[in-house]
Design a protein around this nucleic acid. Structure first.
Length: 121
DNA sequence: CTCTTGACCCGAA
DNA sequence: CTTCGGGCCAAGA
């Protein structure tokens, strides 16, 4: 196993815990892993480690509930098919109803953190 | 070793 | 509505 940071390990761990029929956004995983702004790293970890760790990468979508791949891409069609096989519904626009299918690990109150250190003006 | 890239998210203008 | 920039991570050249 390659030596990876704790963050990556958490990301992989969380992804493996995604229940069937649920989807998670990149930002969601990043928050769960303790890095609210590391959604980019999450994406790359999936991209790179999905094969090595056998991760359900198809359950990870962007914040819009849409598959990140181009519509004409075979990956897009493959991911959509995998999700539909898990009873995940797509709208006509190809979007997923996050209200129903997003995997919410913790309540909303936790998502809004009263302490926001950075971002000075 | 450094530099670039990649399947992104969020907020501001 | 669109466009832009900042932020984080790891792997590859």
């Amino acid at each position: 196993m390659a030596e990876i940071s704790e963050f990556s390990r958490k990301v992989i761990e969380w992804i493996r815990k995604i229940p069937k029929g649920k989807v998670v956004t990149y930002g969601q995983i990043a928050k769960l892993a303790g890095e609210p702004h590391a959604s980019r790293g999450v994406a790359w970890i999936l991209h790179s480690s999905s094969k090595a760790y056998r991760l359900p990468w198809h359950r990870v979508v962007n914040a819009k509930g849409e598959i990140s791949f181009p519509v004409h891409s075979s990956f897009h069609r493959k991911q959509k098919k995998l999700l539909e096989n898990e009873n995940v519904e797509f709208s006509l626009d190809g979007k997923i109803n996050l209200k129903k299918f997003q995997w919410q690990k913790f309540p909303k109150s936790v998502q809004k953190n009263p302490k926001k250190p950075q971002m000075f003006k």
